[in-house]
Design a protein around this nucleic acid. Structure first.
Lengths: 139, 139
DNA sequence: AAAGGAAAGTGATAATTTGGAACTAACCTG
DNA sequence: CAGGTTAGTTCCAAATTATCACTTTCCTTT
């Protein structure tokens, strides 16, 4: 295995929930993971097109962090960045239950304050079809 | 039902995952929820004593936000703040699956970068016994 | 082989949020 | 009714996020 610098993370405690939040506890990281669940692979510019409109520097920062933590990886590890999409690792795929539980909670509990909220299944459909072009193919 | 100002939240999209993160997507909110799952009720100063050491201004801010979103509430709605603990609402209790999934993921996937991480069950034991005093009683 | 274009980032700077510490207000309690 | 506790606020410095222009690389086209 090649060298990977794991973690400049400052773990706040030994608690697994706190530690998960040390990595994933922000508004963007799990959205990157969500996109990869839905589309399997995703290029840099495709991430930028998701409806939440992540800033490019934050995207670059999160992709680096998630890669260093082994949650995502390049589809083609040692080929140039251009059109070299990202995908979930085994570890990343294991986040499925977290995303499903969060999405389900939000759909049933936030509707009053956020009337336009849609179900996970609808969200998946939307994200998939909005960009059903190349990256869904090279999976 | 009395007036509650729901949400000054800016929803980034209609996606339930993104919307959940609009509220809970930070390093602290779910830790407050975690504490309440473990201890059932929790006072302001007890939250401050949790091992991650949240700053008091952020705590106040998050308690206000989670209350306004109906995730937590005062145990004794119309009595003075002093010793008036917080607890989960029905909505808040439904976050259990999110926390469990996150904790499980972290325990199995972060151990390499965070060797001291402990299991959820151990974390629960620790938090419970570290402050098994009053607030676990008035539940 | 050079020109052009698009994709993947970087960098500069402004706005917002966080974190730490001290401070205040309200209330029990003796 | 004095003193200590508890639940916050306020202030300010530091870190993070957002906006947006810029650079670089490499792929295609001629």
């Amino acid at each position: 295995m090649a060298k990977k610098k794991k973690s400049e993370i400052e773990w706040r405690s030994e608690c697994p929930i706190a530690s998960g939040l040390d990595i994933l506890g922000d508004k963007w990281s799990l959205l990157i993971v969500r996109d990869l669940f839905i589309c399997r692979t995703r290029t840099y510019s495709e991430f930028c097109e998701s409806p939440e409109k992540i800033a490019t520097n934050i995207l670059a920062n999160r992709l680096k962090l998630l890669t260093s933590m082994g949650v995502i990886e390049r589809v083609d590890v040692d080929r140039p960045a251009r059109n070299n999409a990202y995908r979930l690792t085994k570890s990343g795929k294991e986040l499925r239950k977290v995303l499903e539980a969060l999405g389900e909670w939000s759909y049933t509990n936030l509707r009053e304050s956020h009337p336009d909220i849609i179900s996970i299944d609808t969200a998946i459909e939307l994200l998939k079809t909005s960009r059903a072009t190349k990256s869904s193919l090279n999976a």
